[in-house]
Design a protein around this nucleic acid. Structure first.
Lengths: 237, 237
DNA sequence: AGCTTAAGTGAGTCCGCCTCACTTTTGTGC
DNA sequence: GCACAAAAGTGAGGCGGACTCACTTAAGCT
Protein backbone atom coordinates (compact mmCIF):
# COMPACT_ATOMS: atom_id res chain seq x y z
CA UNK A 1 0.00 0.00 0.00
CA UNK A 2 2.71 2.45 0.85
CA UNK A 3 4.35 1.53 -2.45
CA UNK A 4 1.18 2.30 -4.41
CA UNK A 5 0.63 5.60 -2.75
CA UNK A 6 4.26 6.67 -2.90
CA UNK A 7 4.88 6.52 -6.62
CA UNK A 8 1.71 8.31 -7.61
CA UNK A 9 1.12 7.07 -11.18
CA UNK A 10 1.66 9.94 -13.60
CA UNK A 11 -1.75 9.65 -15.23
CA UNK A 12 -3.59 10.42 -12.01
CA UNK A 13 -3.74 14.06 -11.04
CA UNK A 14 -3.09 14.66 -7.32
CA UNK A 15 -5.97 16.52 -5.69
CA UNK A 16 -5.61 20.29 -5.86
CA UNK A 17 -4.18 22.12 -2.92
CA UNK A 18 -7.03 23.66 -1.09
CA UNK A 19 -7.69 27.36 -1.52
CA UNK A 20 -10.04 29.96 -0.13
CA UNK A 21 -12.98 30.66 -2.34
CA UNK A 22 -11.84 34.14 -3.35
CA UNK A 23 -8.42 32.90 -4.33
CA UNK A 24 -9.80 30.12 -6.48
CA UNK A 25 -12.20 32.48 -8.16
CA UNK A 26 -9.31 34.73 -8.99
CA UNK A 27 -7.27 31.85 -10.38
CA UNK A 28 -10.13 30.66 -12.49
CA UNK A 29 -10.76 34.14 -13.85
CA UNK A 30 -7.11 34.50 -14.80
CA UNK A 31 -6.97 31.16 -16.53
CA UNK A 32 -10.22 31.81 -18.33
CA UNK A 33 -9.04 35.20 -19.53
CA UNK A 34 -5.82 33.75 -20.83
CA UNK A 35 -7.46 30.88 -22.64
CA UNK A 36 -10.32 32.92 -24.06
CA UNK A 37 -7.73 35.28 -25.49
CA UNK A 38 -5.53 32.51 -26.83
CA UNK A 39 -8.19 30.40 -28.49
CA UNK A 40 -11.42 32.32 -28.41
CA UNK A 41 -14.44 31.71 -26.28
CA UNK A 42 -16.15 28.97 -28.24
CA UNK A 43 -12.91 27.11 -28.79
CA UNK A 44 -12.07 26.98 -25.10
CA UNK A 45 -13.52 24.12 -23.10
CA UNK A 46 -14.27 24.59 -19.45
CA UNK A 47 -12.27 21.46 -18.80
CA UNK A 48 -9.19 23.24 -20.17
CA UNK A 49 -9.69 26.15 -17.83
CA UNK A 50 -9.99 23.77 -14.93
CA UNK A 51 -6.90 21.89 -16.05
CA UNK A 52 -4.85 25.07 -16.20
CA UNK A 53 -5.88 25.95 -12.67
CA UNK A 54 -5.20 22.42 -11.59
CA UNK A 55 -8.66 21.44 -10.47
CA UNK A 56 -11.48 19.36 -11.80
CA UNK A 57 -14.03 20.68 -14.26
CA UNK A 58 -16.97 20.44 -11.88
CA UNK A 59 -15.38 22.87 -9.46
CA UNK A 60 -15.54 25.69 -11.95
CA UNK A 61 -19.30 25.35 -11.97
CA UNK A 62 -19.37 25.62 -8.23
CA UNK A 63 -18.04 29.16 -8.53
CA UNK A 64 -19.59 30.27 -11.79
CA UNK A 65 -23.09 29.26 -12.86
CA UNK A 66 -22.07 28.86 -16.49
CA UNK A 67 -19.20 29.24 -18.87
CA UNK A 68 -20.73 32.42 -20.17
CA UNK A 69 -20.99 33.98 -16.72
CA UNK A 70 -17.28 33.39 -16.46
CA UNK A 71 -16.71 35.32 -19.65
CA UNK A 72 -18.80 38.26 -18.50
CA UNK A 73 -16.97 38.34 -15.21
CA UNK A 74 -13.60 38.43 -16.93
CA UNK A 75 -14.70 41.44 -18.92
CA UNK A 76 -16.22 43.23 -15.95
CA UNK A 77 -12.83 43.17 -14.26
CA UNK A 78 -11.21 44.59 -17.33
CA UNK A 79 -13.76 47.39 -17.77
CA UNK A 80 -13.25 48.47 -14.21
CA UNK A 81 -9.58 49.16 -14.74
CA UNK A 82 -10.31 50.76 -18.10
CA UNK A 83 -12.77 53.17 -16.61
CA UNK A 84 -10.50 54.11 -13.76
CA UNK A 85 -7.56 54.83 -16.03
CA UNK A 86 -9.58 56.86 -18.44
CA UNK A 87 -11.48 58.97 -15.97
CA UNK A 88 -8.33 59.71 -14.02
CA UNK A 89 -6.66 61.03 -17.15
CA UNK A 90 -9.64 63.09 -18.15
CA UNK A 91 -9.59 64.86 -14.84
CA UNK A 92 -6.28 66.44 -15.77
CA UNK A 93 -7.60 68.11 -18.90
CA UNK A 94 -9.69 71.22 -19.19
CA UNK A 95 -11.07 72.01 -22.63
CA UNK A 96 -13.63 69.79 -24.35
CA UNK A 97 -11.39 69.53 -27.38
CA UNK A 98 -8.47 68.19 -25.41
CA UNK A 99 -10.72 65.85 -23.53
CA UNK A 100 -12.36 64.58 -26.69
CA UNK A 101 -9.01 63.86 -28.20
CA UNK A 102 -7.93 62.05 -25.09
CA UNK A 103 -11.02 59.86 -24.83
CA UNK A 104 -10.63 58.75 -28.42
CA UNK A 105 -6.94 58.20 -28.01
CA UNK A 106 -7.41 56.17 -24.86
CA UNK A 107 -10.06 54.04 -26.41
CA UNK A 108 -7.87 53.27 -29.38
CA UNK A 109 -5.06 52.66 -26.96
CA UNK A 110 -7.11 50.17 -25.00
CA UNK A 111 -7.83 48.29 -28.18
CA UNK A 112 -4.19 48.32 -29.18
CA UNK A 113 -3.12 47.13 -25.76
CA UNK A 114 -5.65 44.37 -25.41
CA UNK A 115 -6.97 43.36 -28.77
CA UNK A 116 -7.94 39.92 -27.66
CA UNK A 117 -10.14 41.08 -24.84
CA UNK A 118 -11.70 43.63 -27.15
CA UNK A 119 -12.43 40.91 -29.58
CA UNK A 120 -14.23 38.98 -26.91
CA UNK A 121 -16.24 42.02 -25.99
CA UNK A 122 -17.17 42.97 -29.52
CA UNK A 123 -17.83 39.50 -30.80
CA UNK A 124 -18.94 37.12 -28.18
CA UNK A 125 -20.62 39.15 -25.55
CA UNK A 126 -23.05 41.53 -27.08
CA UNK A 127 -24.56 38.89 -29.26
CA UNK A 128 -26.55 37.16 -26.60
CA UNK A 129 -29.64 38.35 -24.86
CA UNK A 130 -28.21 38.09 -21.41
CA UNK A 131 -25.93 41.05 -21.99
CA UNK A 132 -28.56 43.75 -21.80
CA UNK A 133 -29.00 44.67 -18.18
CA UNK A 134 -26.01 42.69 -17.00
CA UNK A 135 -23.29 44.01 -14.77
CA UNK A 136 -21.02 44.15 -17.77
CA UNK A 137 -23.53 46.22 -19.68
CA UNK A 138 -23.58 48.66 -16.79
CA UNK A 139 -19.79 48.94 -16.88
CA UNK A 140 -19.84 49.50 -20.59
CA UNK A 141 -22.36 52.29 -20.24
CA UNK A 142 -20.41 53.91 -17.48
CA UNK A 143 -17.34 53.81 -19.68
CA UNK A 144 -18.97 55.25 -22.79
CA UNK A 145 -20.62 57.94 -20.70
CA UNK A 146 -17.16 59.43 -20.33
CA UNK A 147 -17.35 60.51 -23.96
CA UNK A 148 -20.93 61.68 -23.62
CA UNK A 149 -19.92 63.81 -20.67
CA UNK A 150 -17.15 65.42 -22.65
CA UNK A 151 -19.50 66.17 -25.51
CA UNK A 152 -22.12 67.59 -23.18
CA UNK A 153 -19.54 69.86 -21.63
CA UNK A 154 -18.49 71.04 -25.07
CA UNK A 155 -22.04 71.78 -26.02
CA UNK A 156 -22.85 73.64 -22.87
CA UNK A 157 -19.78 75.83 -23.12
CA UNK A 158 -20.46 76.55 -26.75
CA UNK A 159 -17.56 74.73 -28.37
CA UNK A 160 -19.72 72.08 -30.01
CA UNK A 161 -22.90 72.36 -31.97
CA UNK A 162 -25.99 71.36 -30.12
CA UNK A 163 -28.32 70.14 -32.81
CA UNK A 164 -27.20 66.53 -32.91
CA UNK A 165 -28.28 64.00 -30.31
CA UNK A 166 -25.51 62.84 -28.04
CA UNK A 167 -26.17 59.13 -28.54
CA UNK A 168 -25.68 59.60 -32.25
CA UNK A 169 -22.28 61.08 -31.68
CA UNK A 170 -21.34 58.49 -29.14
CA UNK A 171 -22.35 55.63 -31.40
CA UNK A 172 -20.59 57.13 -34.38
CA UNK A 173 -17.36 57.42 -32.50
CA UNK A 174 -17.36 54.07 -30.77
CA UNK A 175 -18.86 52.22 -33.70
CA UNK A 176 -16.43 53.86 -36.07
CA UNK A 177 -13.47 52.99 -33.92
CA UNK A 178 -14.65 49.43 -33.64
CA UNK A 179 -14.86 49.08 -37.38
CA UNK A 180 -11.56 50.83 -37.88
CA UNK A 181 -9.76 48.43 -35.66
CA UNK A 182 -11.37 45.35 -37.06
CA UNK A 183 -8.44 44.09 -39.04
CA UNK A 184 -6.16 44.72 -36.14
CA UNK A 185 -8.45 42.82 -33.83
CA UNK A 186 -8.37 39.88 -36.16
CA UNK A 187 -4.60 39.87 -36.11
CA UNK A 188 -4.10 41.56 -39.44
CA UNK A 189 -2.29 44.84 -39.81
CA UNK A 190 -1.32 47.40 -37.22
CA UNK A 191 -3.18 50.10 -35.34
CA UNK A 192 -1.64 53.54 -35.51
CA UNK A 193 -3.32 55.01 -32.48
CA UNK A 194 -1.93 58.47 -32.87
CA UNK A 195 -2.71 59.20 -36.46
CA UNK A 196 -6.08 57.51 -36.27
CA UNK A 197 -6.97 59.60 -33.25
CA UNK A 198 -5.92 62.75 -35.07
CA UNK A 199 -7.95 61.93 -38.12
CA UNK A 200 -10.99 60.94 -36.14
CA UNK A 201 -10.92 64.04 -34.03
CA UNK A 202 -10.51 66.15 -37.11
CA UNK A 203 -13.50 64.56 -38.75
CA UNK A 204 -15.70 64.70 -35.73
CA UNK A 205 -14.70 68.18 -34.73
CA UNK A 206 -15.24 69.66 -38.12
CA UNK A 207 -18.73 68.44 -37.76
CA UNK A 208 -19.00 69.66 -34.24
CA UNK A 209 -17.04 72.81 -33.89
CA UNK A 210 -18.79 76.13 -33.89
CA UNK A 211 -16.12 78.49 -35.19
CA UNK A 212 -15.80 81.22 -32.65
CA UNK A 213 -14.89 83.80 -35.26
CA UNK A 214 -18.20 83.83 -37.03
CA UNK A 215 -20.14 87.02 -36.48
CA UNK A 216 -23.29 86.10 -34.56
CA UNK A 217 -25.43 88.51 -36.53
CA UNK A 218 -24.93 86.68 -39.78
CA UNK A 219 -25.18 83.25 -38.27
CA UNK A 220 -28.42 82.10 -39.69
CA UNK A 221 -29.49 84.89 -41.95
CA UNK A 222 -26.70 84.64 -44.43
CA UNK A 223 -26.67 80.95 -44.62
CA UNK A 224 -25.40 79.86 -47.95
CA UNK A 225 -27.56 78.78 -50.78
CA UNK A 226 -25.52 75.67 -50.65
CA UNK A 227 -28.80 74.37 -49.33
CA UNK A 228 -27.28 72.32 -46.66
CA UNK A 229 -30.31 70.39 -45.73
CA UNK A 230 -32.13 70.29 -48.99
CA UNK A 231 -29.27 68.90 -50.89
CA UNK A 232 -27.87 66.60 -48.35
CA UNK A 233 -30.89 64.93 -48.07
CA UNK A 234 -34.29 65.70 -47.10
CA UNK A 235 -35.67 62.52 -48.35
CA UNK A 236 -37.17 62.92 -51.69
CA UNK A 237 -38.88 59.69 -52.46
CA UNK B 1 -47.60 -6.03 -45.27
CA UNK B 2 -50.08 -3.76 -47.02
CA UNK B 3 -51.78 -3.27 -43.66
CA UNK B 4 -48.58 -2.20 -42.00
CA UNK B 5 -47.65 0.19 -44.72
CA UNK B 6 -51.14 1.60 -45.12
CA UNK B 7 -51.72 2.93 -41.64
CA UNK B 8 -48.35 4.47 -41.30
CA UNK B 9 -47.92 4.87 -37.50
CA UNK B 10 -47.92 8.56 -36.64
CA UNK B 11 -44.60 8.51 -34.83
CA UNK B 12 -42.69 7.44 -37.91
CA UNK B 13 -41.99 10.15 -40.44
CA UNK B 14 -42.67 9.08 -44.02
CA UNK B 15 -39.60 9.40 -46.20
CA UNK B 16 -39.31 12.81 -47.81
CA UNK B 17 -40.51 13.28 -51.34
CA UNK B 18 -37.51 13.23 -53.55
CA UNK B 19 -36.20 16.53 -54.86
CA UNK B 20 -33.49 17.70 -57.21
CA UNK B 21 -30.38 18.87 -55.44
CA UNK B 22 -30.85 22.55 -56.26
CA UNK B 23 -34.40 22.54 -54.97
CA UNK B 24 -33.44 20.92 -51.70
CA UNK B 25 -30.61 23.33 -51.22
CA UNK B 26 -33.02 26.18 -51.70
CA UNK B 27 -35.49 24.69 -49.22
CA UNK B 28 -32.80 24.16 -46.65
CA UNK B 29 -31.52 27.71 -47.06
CA UNK B 30 -35.01 29.09 -46.60
CA UNK B 31 -35.66 27.05 -43.51
CA UNK B 32 -32.28 27.91 -42.07
CA UNK B 33 -32.79 31.61 -42.67
CA UNK B 34 -36.17 31.52 -41.00
CA UNK B 35 -34.98 29.61 -37.98
CA UNK B 36 -31.76 31.56 -37.53
CA UNK B 37 -33.83 34.72 -37.53
CA UNK B 38 -36.43 33.33 -35.16
CA UNK B 39 -34.13 31.83 -32.57
CA UNK B 40 -30.62 32.90 -33.38
CA UNK B 41 -27.81 30.83 -34.81
CA UNK B 42 -26.55 29.08 -31.72
CA UNK B 43 -30.04 28.31 -30.51
CA UNK B 44 -31.04 26.61 -33.74
CA UNK B 45 -30.22 22.93 -34.06
CA UNK B 46 -29.52 21.48 -37.46
CA UNK B 47 -32.07 18.82 -36.67
CA UNK B 48 -34.71 21.54 -36.45
CA UNK B 49 -33.80 22.87 -39.86
CA UNK B 50 -34.04 19.39 -41.28
CA UNK B 51 -37.37 18.82 -39.56
CA UNK B 52 -38.82 21.99 -41.02
CA UNK B 53 -37.79 20.91 -44.49
CA UNK B 54 -39.12 17.45 -43.81
CA UNK B 55 -35.90 15.49 -44.16
CA UNK B 56 -33.46 13.84 -41.85
CA UNK B 57 -30.60 15.71 -40.18
CA UNK B 58 -27.88 13.86 -42.03
CA UNK B 59 -29.10 15.10 -45.38
CA UNK B 60 -28.35 18.69 -44.51
CA UNK B 61 -24.72 17.75 -44.12
CA UNK B 62 -24.74 16.20 -47.54
CA UNK B 63 -25.41 19.63 -49.05
CA UNK B 64 -23.56 21.87 -46.60
CA UNK B 65 -20.28 20.89 -45.02
CA UNK B 66 -21.21 22.45 -41.68
CA UNK B 67 -23.89 24.39 -39.91
CA UNK B 68 -21.77 27.48 -40.21
CA UNK B 69 -21.37 27.15 -43.98
CA UNK B 70 -25.13 27.16 -44.11
CA UNK B 71 -25.23 30.43 -42.23
CA UNK B 72 -22.71 32.07 -44.53
CA UNK B 73 -24.62 30.91 -47.56
CA UNK B 74 -27.85 32.37 -46.26
CA UNK B 75 -26.16 35.73 -45.86
CA UNK B 76 -24.48 35.62 -49.27
CA UNK B 77 -27.89 35.35 -50.88
CA UNK B 78 -29.10 38.32 -48.95
CA UNK B 79 -26.09 40.49 -49.74
CA UNK B 80 -26.54 39.84 -53.41
CA UNK B 81 -30.01 41.34 -53.43
CA UNK B 82 -28.87 44.17 -51.20
CA UNK B 83 -26.08 45.12 -53.55
CA UNK B 84 -28.28 44.99 -56.61
CA UNK B 85 -30.94 47.20 -55.08
CA UNK B 86 -28.49 49.72 -53.82
CA UNK B 87 -26.35 50.05 -56.92
CA UNK B 88 -29.43 50.33 -59.12
CA UNK B 89 -30.68 53.23 -57.06
CA UNK B 90 -27.34 54.95 -57.02
CA UNK B 91 -27.23 54.94 -60.79
CA UNK B 92 -30.18 57.31 -60.86
CA UNK B 93 -28.44 59.98 -58.81
CA UNK B 94 -25.84 62.46 -59.96
CA UNK B 95 -24.18 64.50 -57.23
CA UNK B 96 -21.97 62.94 -54.57
CA UNK B 97 -24.08 64.56 -51.90
CA UNK B 98 -27.27 62.99 -53.13
CA UNK B 99 -25.56 59.66 -53.53
CA UNK B 100 -24.03 59.79 -50.08
CA UNK B 101 -27.37 60.47 -48.57
CA UNK B 102 -28.88 57.62 -50.50
CA UNK B 103 -26.26 55.07 -49.55
CA UNK B 104 -26.68 55.87 -45.89
CA UNK B 105 -30.43 55.87 -46.15
CA UNK B 106 -30.45 52.55 -47.95
CA UNK B 107 -28.16 50.96 -45.47
CA UNK B 108 -30.31 52.08 -42.58
CA UNK B 109 -33.30 50.90 -44.56
CA UNK B 110 -31.80 47.47 -44.99
CA UNK B 111 -31.29 47.22 -41.27
CA UNK B 112 -34.82 48.36 -40.59
CA UNK B 113 -36.22 45.91 -43.09
CA UNK B 114 -34.25 42.91 -41.99
CA UNK B 115 -32.99 43.40 -38.49
CA UNK B 116 -32.69 39.71 -37.78
CA UNK B 117 -30.44 39.00 -40.72
CA UNK B 118 -28.36 42.02 -39.81
CA UNK B 119 -28.02 40.68 -36.34
CA UNK B 120 -26.69 37.45 -37.71
CA UNK B 121 -24.23 39.30 -39.86
CA UNK B 122 -23.01 41.63 -37.15
CA UNK B 123 -22.91 39.12 -34.37
CA UNK B 124 -22.34 35.62 -35.49
CA UNK B 125 -20.46 35.84 -38.70
CA UNK B 126 -17.58 38.17 -38.35
CA UNK B 127 -16.49 36.66 -35.11
CA UNK B 128 -14.94 33.55 -36.55
CA UNK B 129 -11.75 33.24 -38.50
CA UNK B 130 -13.36 31.62 -41.50
CA UNK B 131 -15.05 34.87 -42.49
CA UNK B 132 -11.99 36.64 -43.80
CA UNK B 133 -11.57 35.66 -47.42
CA UNK B 134 -14.92 33.91 -47.63
CA UNK B 135 -17.46 34.48 -50.36
CA UNK B 136 -19.52 36.42 -47.87
CA UNK B 137 -16.61 38.66 -47.07
CA UNK B 138 -16.26 39.41 -50.77
CA UNK B 139 -19.92 40.38 -50.99
CA UNK B 140 -19.60 42.57 -47.99
CA UNK B 141 -16.64 44.38 -49.48
CA UNK B 142 -18.40 44.83 -52.77
CA UNK B 143 -21.34 46.31 -50.93
CA UNK B 144 -19.35 48.74 -48.81
CA UNK B 145 -17.34 49.79 -51.84
CA UNK B 146 -20.49 51.51 -53.01
CA UNK B 147 -19.96 54.11 -50.33
CA UNK B 148 -16.26 54.33 -51.01
CA UNK B 149 -16.99 54.97 -54.67
CA UNK B 150 -19.35 57.78 -53.79
CA UNK B 151 -16.79 59.36 -51.52
CA UNK B 152 -14.07 59.04 -54.13
CA UNK B 153 -16.26 60.72 -56.68
CA UNK B 154 -16.94 63.54 -54.26
CA UNK B 155 -13.28 64.00 -53.60
CA UNK B 156 -12.29 63.99 -57.23
CA UNK B 157 -14.93 66.55 -58.19
CA UNK B 158 -13.97 68.75 -55.29
CA UNK B 159 -17.08 68.46 -53.12
CA UNK B 160 -15.34 66.57 -50.34
CA UNK B 161 -12.07 67.18 -48.60
CA UNK B 162 -9.30 64.88 -49.59
CA UNK B 163 -7.10 64.70 -46.51
CA UNK B 164 -8.83 61.81 -44.80
CA UNK B 165 -8.34 58.22 -45.88
CA UNK B 166 -11.36 56.62 -47.47
CA UNK B 167 -11.33 53.54 -45.25
CA UNK B 168 -11.56 55.75 -42.21
CA UNK B 169 -14.67 57.39 -43.56
CA UNK B 170 -16.16 54.12 -44.63
CA UNK B 171 -15.59 52.52 -41.25
CA UNK B 172 -16.90 55.52 -39.40
CA UNK B 173 -20.13 55.46 -41.35
CA UNK B 174 -20.79 51.75 -41.29
CA UNK B 175 -19.52 51.28 -37.78
CA UNK B 176 -21.51 54.23 -36.56
CA UNK B 177 -24.67 52.98 -38.19
CA UNK B 178 -24.14 49.58 -36.71
CA UNK B 179 -23.83 50.98 -33.23
CA UNK B 180 -26.75 53.30 -33.77
CA UNK B 181 -29.04 50.49 -34.67
CA UNK B 182 -27.94 48.22 -31.90
CA UNK B 183 -30.94 48.58 -29.70
CA UNK B 184 -33.21 48.17 -32.64
CA UNK B 185 -31.41 45.03 -33.68
CA UNK B 186 -31.91 43.60 -30.25
CA UNK B 187 -35.61 44.23 -30.46
CA UNK B 188 -35.65 47.36 -28.33
CA UNK B 189 -36.81 50.69 -29.65
CA UNK B 190 -37.43 51.84 -33.18
CA UNK B 191 -35.22 52.94 -36.02
CA UNK B 192 -36.13 56.25 -37.56
CA UNK B 193 -34.36 55.80 -40.85
CA UNK B 194 -35.11 59.21 -42.19
CA UNK B 195 -34.06 61.40 -39.34
CA UNK B 196 -31.03 59.28 -38.57
CA UNK B 197 -29.93 59.52 -42.18
CA UNK B 198 -30.35 63.26 -42.10
CA UNK B 199 -28.34 63.63 -38.93
CA UNK B 200 -25.60 61.33 -40.09
CA UNK B 201 -25.24 63.03 -43.42
CA UNK B 202 -25.15 66.37 -41.73
CA UNK B 203 -22.41 65.26 -39.38
CA UNK B 204 -20.34 63.58 -42.01
CA UNK B 205 -20.75 66.33 -44.56
CA UNK B 206 -19.81 69.09 -42.24
CA UNK B 207 -16.56 67.31 -41.82
CA UNK B 208 -16.21 66.63 -45.49
CA UNK B 209 -17.43 69.56 -47.41
CA UNK B 210 -14.96 71.98 -48.85
CA UNK B 211 -16.84 75.25 -49.02
CA UNK B 212 -16.61 76.25 -52.64
CA UNK B 213 -16.80 80.00 -52.21
CA UNK B 214 -14.12 80.48 -49.60
CA UNK B 215 -10.63 81.57 -50.62
CA UNK B 216 -8.19 78.67 -50.23
CA UNK B 217 -6.06 80.36 -47.62
CA UNK B 218 -8.88 80.67 -45.14
CA UNK B 219 -10.68 77.59 -46.30
CA UNK B 220 -11.71 76.03 -43.08
CA UNK B 221 -11.28 78.98 -40.82
CA UNK B 222 -14.11 80.95 -42.31
CA UNK B 223 -16.51 78.15 -42.42
CA UNK B 224 -19.90 79.07 -41.23
CA UNK B 225 -21.42 77.84 -38.03
CA UNK B 226 -24.44 76.66 -39.94
CA UNK B 227 -26.58 74.91 -37.47
CA UNK B 228 -27.69 72.80 -40.29
CA UNK B 229 -30.62 70.84 -39.15
CA UNK B 230 -31.22 72.71 -35.97
CA UNK B 231 -34.84 73.41 -36.69
CA UNK B 232 -35.69 70.53 -38.89
CA UNK B 233 -37.58 68.65 -36.28
CA UNK B 234 -34.85 66.25 -35.49
CA UNK B 235 -35.43 64.49 -32.21
CA UNK B 236 -33.42 66.14 -29.51
CA UNK B 237 -33.52 63.17 -27.15
C1' DA C 1 -36.24 -4.41 -67.40
C1' DG C 2 -31.62 -3.78 -65.82
C1' DC C 3 -28.20 -0.48 -64.27
C1' DT C 4 -26.19 3.67 -62.58
C1' DT C 5 -26.51 7.57 -59.97
C1' DA C 6 -27.85 10.45 -56.55
C1' DA C 7 -31.34 11.35 -52.77
C1' DG C 8 -32.42 9.97 -48.48
C1' DT C 9 -32.00 7.34 -44.02
C1' DG C 10 -30.97 6.42 -39.12
C1' DA C 11 -28.00 4.65 -36.07
C1' DG C 12 -24.39 5.95 -34.26
C1' DT C 13 -19.69 8.75 -32.55
C1' DC C 14 -17.65 12.45 -30.30
C1' DC C 15 -17.33 16.27 -27.53
C1' DG C 16 -18.58 19.91 -24.45
C1' DC C 17 -21.58 22.02 -20.87
C1' DC C 18 -23.36 21.11 -16.76
C1' DT C 19 -25.13 18.14 -12.42
C1' DC C 20 -24.81 15.66 -8.33
C1' DA C 21 -23.90 12.48 -4.71
C1' DC C 22 -20.01 11.78 -2.47
C1' DT C 23 -15.15 12.42 -0.14
C1' DT C 24 -11.68 15.19 2.05
C1' DT C 25 -9.93 19.09 4.34
C1' DT C 26 -10.26 23.06 7.38
C1' DG C 27 -11.39 25.54 11.31
C1' DT C 28 -14.21 26.23 15.38
C1' DG C 29 -16.36 25.39 19.95
C1' DC C 30 -15.92 22.45 23.76
C1' DG D 1 -7.09 17.27 21.56
C1' DC D 2 -11.49 16.06 19.40
C1' DA D 3 -16.03 15.99 17.36
C1' DC D 4 -18.49 18.18 14.00
C1' DA D 5 -20.20 21.53 10.72
C1' DA D 6 -19.06 23.89 6.64
C1' DA D 7 -16.72 24.46 2.69
C1' DA D 8 -13.42 22.71 -1.05
C1' DG D 9 -12.80 19.29 -4.16
C1' DT D 10 -13.89 14.99 -6.87
C1' DG D 11 -15.33 12.14 -10.85
C1' DA D 12 -18.78 9.67 -13.05
C1' DG D 13 -22.36 10.44 -15.85
C1' DG D 14 -26.56 12.89 -18.20
C1' DC D 15 -27.82 15.39 -22.03
C1' DG D 16 -27.90 17.60 -26.24
C1' DG D 17 -26.00 18.95 -30.53
C1' DA D 18 -22.66 18.74 -34.56
C1' DC D 19 -21.17 15.66 -37.68
C1' DT D 20 -20.25 10.61 -40.06
C1' DC D 21 -21.16 6.59 -42.57
C1' DA D 22 -22.74 2.30 -44.34
C1' DC D 23 -26.71 1.40 -46.23
C1' DT D 24 -31.49 1.72 -48.69
C1' DT D 25 -34.44 3.48 -52.20
C1' DA D 26 -36.24 6.21 -55.85
C1' DA D 27 -35.40 8.27 -60.57
C1' DG D 28 -33.57 8.52 -65.05
C1' DC D 29 -31.18 6.40 -68.91
C1' DT D 30 -30.43 3.00 -72.43
Amino acid sequence: MSGRKARRPAAVRPPATRRARAERVEEILDAARALFCEKGYAQTAVSEIAARVGVVEGLVFKYFPSKRALLLEVLVHWYDTLFDDCSRELATLATPTERLRRVIERHLGAIAANPLLCRLMFLEVRSEHDYHGSALHARNRRYTELLVGVLAQGISDGSFRSDLPLPLLRDLVYGGIEHLSWNYLCGRGALDVDSLATQLVSLVLDGLRVPAAAPPATRRATRRPTTVVADSGVPRR
